[in-house]
């Protein structure tokens, strides 16, 4: 919201202050509060997926344990570490923005992007393996070993798996977009200790993506 021209009614504003805010403190607080409310709706959006997981697991406990064996714990763990690392680099990027160091912001954003792409690459490897052997959601499910031993709807686990990781992956993709935007703005030297809430909000978003994964990983991969 920072591109609107200031100086509408008398006062001299810095270029990044929108005309309807009285001062930067108000603008920053509003931006951050708005972001938190956005994260709130993200959490409730994911709540539906977690509820779907919980109820299907409740109905088919045996299937859940059996089907989860088909996931690759190592891949999942590596991906967790990749995402945690990108979360750290993002936090450091925000810190650099707080200090007004645009160069470092861009560098940390680049590091975060590397993590995000790494996550997607590993996810891609996992997906392509599953697609190859027929561990697919819903009616596409075609994995003989499980359908022979387990008639309790084994496809449901993979429905839930693909919906959860898919929606999460979509968030990663969106994250890549906004982090890239922040990186470009940092290269343009947009940020200063007074004006960094865009970096901070993107950071908050990225940490939430991380936060969701922190729960997805054990629920899908680890709980035997």
């Amino acid at each position: 919201m920072s591109t609107a021209a200031g100086a509408d009614h008398g006062h001299a504003h810095p270029w990044y202050q929108a005309h309807h805010f009285k001062n930067m403190e108000q603008q920053n607080a509003a931006n951050k509060f708005g972001m938190w409310l956005f994260l709130v709706q993200e959490l409730l959006f994911f709540a539906g997926l977690f509820m779907a997981y919980a109820s299907m697991r409740f109905f088919y406990p045996g299937t859940w344990l059996e089907a989860a064996e088909q996931l690759d714990k190592v891949m999942g763990a590596v991906n967790t570490i990749v995402l945690l690392t990108s979360s750290l680099t993002m936090a450091l990027g925000v810190r650099a923005a707080q200090l007004g160091n645009n160069g470092q912001v861009a560098a940390w954003c680049a590091a975060t992007l590397a993590g995000a792409y790494g996550f997607l690459v590993i996810k891609y490897l996992e997906y392509s393996h599953k697609i190859h052997v027929g561990l697919l959601p819903g009616k596409w499910f075609d994995f003989k070993e499980l359908t022979q031993t387990n008639t309790d709807a084994p496809q449901l686990f993979f429905s839930v798996y693909f919906m959860m990781t898919g929606v999460h992956g979509l968030h990663v993709v969106i994250g890549i977009g906004v982090i890239f935007w922040i990186m470009l703005r940092a290269l343009r030297k947009d940020f200063s200790p007074e004006n960094y809430s865009a970096v901070e909000n993107v950071g908050l978003y990225w940490h939430l993506v991380d936060l969701i994964w922190i729960f997805l990983f054990p629920l899908l991969y680890l709980v035997r």
């Binding site: 299907m56 088919y60 819903g138 009616k139 496809q155 449901l156 429905s159």
Partner: peptide, 13 residues
């Protein structure tokens, strides 16, 4: 895709 969480024919509720 027929993910089946809500459809009883696929095991859902």
């Amino acid at each position: 895709v027929g993910i089946g969480i809500f459809d009883p024919a696929l095991g859902g509720d």
